[in-house]
Each structure stands twice: as C-alpha cells, then as structure tokens.
Design a protein around this nucleic acid. Structure first.
Lengths: 202, 202
DNA sequence: ACTTGACTAGACTGACCGGTCTATTCATAA
DNA sequence: TTATGAATAGACCGGTCAGTCTAGTCAAGT
C-alpha cells in the first residue's frame, strides 16, 4: 500500500517539476520515469496517457496552491488590499527562490501550459480555464470586501478581478522572458491600481 | 531570382502561421515544408536550423507588427491615451478574426514563444526579450507625452509602460485560455488605469 | 495451498523528429 | 560551350516519441 501511493506520488511530483521547469511537449514519459525511478509499465498502470498525467499535475498543483500561499495571501484576517501585496510578494519570492536554485525562472505552470496547449487540447484548455476561474474568484472576494469596507470606490468586481489575474500572469510572463524575478516586485504593486468601471446603468 | 525570394518567403510565412497557431515544439520542419511546397534540401539551404527559422519568424513578425497596427495605434497624431484604446481594439479584432477563421484564439506569438522556450533556449529568450523591450518603449513614449500634456499625473513611465505591456499579454493569455476574444475587449480598457508610482525622491 | 488482481519490469512498435547527404537542375557569366 | 554556384529534390540517418505487450512479483483473501 505504501509503495503504491509512493509510486504514483513520485511520478506526479517529478512530472510537475519537469513540466514547470521546461514545457509539456519537451518532457517525455521516459524522462519522467527515469527521474522518478519508475518503469514505463508502472507509469501506464497509473496514468492512461500523457494527457491524463497533465490533468493530474494541474489538479495537484492547483490544490497545493489553494492550500498553500494562496490561502495565506487571501487570508480573511488581512485587510483586503493588503492581500494583493501579499500575493505579489509570494509570487516574487517563489520565482526568486526557483531562479536561485535552477538558474532560470520557471514562471507560472498554469500560464505556461495554457499558452502551450490551449490551441490543440480542448480538455486541458478547459481545465486550465477552470483553474483561472477559481483564482480570479479569490480576487473577486477581496474586491467585494474592500468595496464593502469603503476602501475603494465601487467598480466592476467581476471584470476587475479577472484583470488582476491577467496582470499577475502578465508580469510573470515578462519576468520569465527577462529571466529576472525583480520585474514582479517592481511592477506588481500596480495591481492595486487596476480597475474596470461599473457598466453603465441607464 | 523571383523563385528564390519566394521560397524563403513561403517557408517563413508558413512557419509563422503554424508556430502562431500551435507551438514551436509541435510544428516540425517536415510539416512546414509540405505546406510551403518546399523540400527539406531547400529548407536547409535557407535556414541552418529550426532555431534560426524561429529567429527569422520572430524578426518577420516583429517587423510586420511595427509597420502594421502598432504603428497605427501609436500614431503621434492621436491623443496619447487614445492610442491605448486603439491598441486594445486592434488586439481584439485581430484575435477575433483569427478565431472566426480557425476556431481558436492563437494569442500573441511572442508571448506564446516566450513561455514555451525561455527556459531552454537562451538565444530565443533574449530575442523575445528584445521584442518586448521595444514594444514597451512605445507605451513609454505615449506615457511621456500624456504627462507632458498634463492628461495624467506624473508617474514612473518606465515601469508603468512595462506594466501595460504585461497587462496586454496577460489579457491575451486569459482570453486564449478561455478561447474568447471578448475578454480582451472587456478587460482591455483597464490598461489606462494602471500606474506605477514614481520612486521616492529623497 | 491457491487464487486473484494490483503492481512492476522492460523489451518492443511504428511513427516521427531534426538534420545530413548526394544527386540534379538551372541561371548566369566567361 | 562550358564552368560555376545557388537552389531544389528527396532518400536517408540515428535518435526519440507515446504507447503496447508479455512476463513476472507480491501481498491479501479464501
């Protein structure tokens, strides 16, 4: 029982690291198996296909995220707008740590996968879209609370929360392209200035 | 002489379309050759490697961009802040047209490539970084002018221009993941609200 | 003791990859 | 007419890809 869970887990975490550090297409099943010290046969016992593995990796990462620093950043006890700074900080330190170890910025696994596979794998695209949907809802709650507390003027919280997520992904993209995590710290705070006006009433 | 230019051109535009519509890794030389009606031998006569082709594709696209709708959007005769709306509009219509034809949003070729290859190809990464650098300088000029004309309060134009580019890439990423160009139109206008404060003086 | 089924092991398949190679065509210039 | 070199044609190479298959291990249930 122990080794069973272990094998699957080992495949999953290895795949996650490799996909994150390089790309989906660039990492082969064999490489994952070798690094995880697992044979092909075992791999295909647990995962019917590479696509299924990717689905599991996304789920795995999303769960770690939700219970990890996303939960911390969007802590209900923090003043709403401070949560945004916390989120930016977390992203910065994460990418910086990764770069210090690996020499290059991996960026955001979800963003990386989204741009790579969206045009040729509907299933993965839909899954990644759901992850983003959920992520933006965190921003949404934060904005609602900030408005309620009168800390910011009313705005289109739905659209603005998506804009904030887009901005976060955008600065990570730019930082990765420059291979410099500082970009996140420099541009990040501007996330608080983003706003989509409420649609016209009349 | 005519056929020479033609062959190289055909390879280039075909590669560009395929890379843009799918990804760098997913498109093989053979597929490009078949579609461009060119043989392998001819291909390698013009391009020493797939990487060189990618470099040429990036240059080609960057030039088309610079002389195409980027030049239009950042028209000096337009009021500065209107240029930003123009840019968003252009991005929206481009992606919408592509989706109407192909059924899926290709996103931004530069952003796509950047996330895909940045961690494993220094040369391409540096080139893409340069493209982004140049793109953000367009925003920079726009901001400088807007400040000069007193249309916006002074801000860190260098950082804000990068933030705007990041936001643009971010909304295109989100739109591609949702396979819905409307995201660009909905969130896009918020680009004008982005601002990075001037660094502290003393 | 025997059966069952989850799990491991790793050889193997056919397709495809980027890239090389040799042979040939063809326009130009001497 | 012949020589030259750019351009084309396409067979070919070693390697890798995702995925299959057969054989066997091993622990739990009866």
């Amino acid at each position: 029982m122990n080794t069973v869970v272990d094998t699957r887990e080992r495949i999953l975490t290895t795949a996650r690291e490799l996909f994150h550090g390089r790309s989906y297409a660039d990492v082969g099943i064999k490489e994952i198996c070798d690094l995880a010290k697992v044979q092909k046969g075992s791999f295909y016992h647990f995962f019917p296909s590479k696509q299924d593995l990717a689905m599991a990796v996304i789920d795995d990462m999303a769960e770690d995220w939700a219970h990890g620093f996303v939960a911390e950043a969007f802590d209900r006890n923090l003043p709403p707008m401070e949560r945004l700074d916390y989120m930016i900080d977390a992203a910065y330190y994460w990418q910086k740590a990764a770069k210090d170890i690996e020499g290059r910025m991996p960026g955001c696994l979800f963003g990386n996968l989204a741009l790579e596979v969206s045009t040729r794998d509907e299933v993965l695209r839909a899954k990644l879209n759901a992850v983003f949907q959920k992520a933006s809802s965190q921003f949404h709650e934060t904005l609602d609370e900030a408005i309620e507390q009168g800390q910011i003027a009313p705005l289109d919280a739905q659209a603005t929360s998506q804009a904030m997520l887009a901005f976060l992904e955008g600065i990570i993209l730019l930082a990765k392209t420059r291979n410099d995590p500082e970009v996140i710290r420099t541009l990040g705070p501007a996330i608080k200035t983003l706003r989509v006006e409420l649609p016209m009433e009349n």
